[in-house]
Design a protein around this nucleic acid. Structure first.
Lengths: 223, 223
DNA sequence: CTGTTATTCAATCGACTACTTGAATATATA
DNA sequence: TATATATTCAAGTAGTCGATTGAATAACAG
């Protein structure tokens, strides 16, 4: 029956996408790429992989249709092929969180104060920004901030957080965000801000999701 | 940095889910399970696999948190752990359809209708029903159909689909629907109808949404 | 208790995966 | 033109995966 073959062929193609998602390093690379176009060696550095290895992973992602490459001079930049990839990644994460006991255990182990950190949803943050009630703080490294950030956010790399303390308006609540819902930088920032007596929460999601939702972003360079 | 380990551990867990989705046979099993609880040997028959092999795949799916098992007498029945798994499967399919050239080639090779993967919106369906251009097919089990269905729809439970093939007007397009936008029954029905050379699409939403929109419904029994 | 059925476990084999190393291919710069 | 840089390709190794086969559980029937 050729129809059975059709079905099986189709599932084989779907499985190619699944296979691309079956490796932790590739998922991490995807998360970095989700924040904006990245070159190979930047990605290798961010993920802590060798360049050749990174290149190979990127080609698997490309063959699975999750990323596309663009060559500019000596550099090859990768970016997601579309917002549906982001949706796919988020539903993967959601299923994993929901159904894998190990994930919950992990999160609880590392993020002891999880519930006290009440994340703020994106739409609520948007409203509060408009009302001038909050300071939005981007705690990612400067390069990532430059590549794109929430409009109105200030960049405070985690290492320099303490330097900026007295520049923060004491009456405004601080909302920190970073790369995604599981990015620990924002958790750390909130914990440290609170140690210094400031009101602080974190954004429920992260920069890629904010951007994908069509909410206002700013990039300081091309990108 | 302990946070790097945390992050990597987390991605390793996500990758477990991805790995479960990385094999065509497992994806096919998942689709069958999505239609309702199934026992091991039924699944083995449906997928054309040996029982031992099916059992192994099912356990991988279970360890990835995608399905759960329930033992009743001699039989072990598997079902999806939740609706978010369905959402994940659909976004996987969507990304694959969107970005894998091979999928498009496959679909175009086997299917006569080109824009066929696009679901039809409710208002458009309503118009086409009035124009007598389509056969509306409710692929849910009979009890659900009896409790309420789109006015004018015929009930063809998925298991009996092949029996009804010659009763379908060959010149009319078939529009299948079931429980909601992510209900796989309709996907499956469309795929199988197309395998038999019929024009088929699925309704963008499902019965609950149709009813909620105030569009015409009929119930055959009390209710 | 014996035999049957449904499912899982265990052992095996060929194929594939992740990563490393070192070379090849472009592209820019001096 | 020669040289450095960014990326990809190719080959090799240890480890994992998918499927088959046959045995091991477990629940039921006679």
């Amino acid at each position: 029956m050729s129809s059975n073959n059709f079905k099986h062929d189709l599932f084989t193609q779907f499985a190619r996408v699944g296979k691309a998602l079956s490796n932790a390093n590739r998922l991490e690379l995807l998360e970095f790429i989700a924040q904006g176009e990245r070159t190979v060696d930047v990605l290798a550095t961010l993920a802590g992989l060798s360049i050749a290895n990174t290149s190979q992973h990127l080609q698997q992602l490309r063959q699975a249709g999750l990323v596309t490459a663009r060559k500019e001079g000596q550099f090859v930049s990768y970016r997601l092929t579309g917002d549906d990839v982001l949706i796919l990644l988020n539903s993967l994460r959601q299923v994993a969180e929901h159904h894998l006991a190990d994930v919950e255990r992990l999160v609880n182990t590392y993020l002891t104060v999880k519930d006290s950190l009440e994340p703020i949803p994106a739409n609520e943050l948007l409203q509060r920004v408009r009302d001038g009630l909050v300071t939005v703080m981007d705690v990612r490294p400067r390069e990532e901030y430059d590549a794109g950030h929430l409009t109105g956010a200030v960049n405070v790399p985690l290492a320099e957080l303490e330097k900026y303390l007295d520049q923060l308006a004491a009456d405004k609540e601080v909302v920190a965000y970073c790369r995604g819902p599981h990015c620990v930088l924002a958790f750390d920032a909130v914990a440290r801000l609170r140690e210094h007596g400031l009101k602080a929460r974190r954004l429920e999601t992260g920069y890629p999701e904010w951007k994908a939702a069509g909410l206002p972003v700013t990039s300081d360079s091309r990108d």
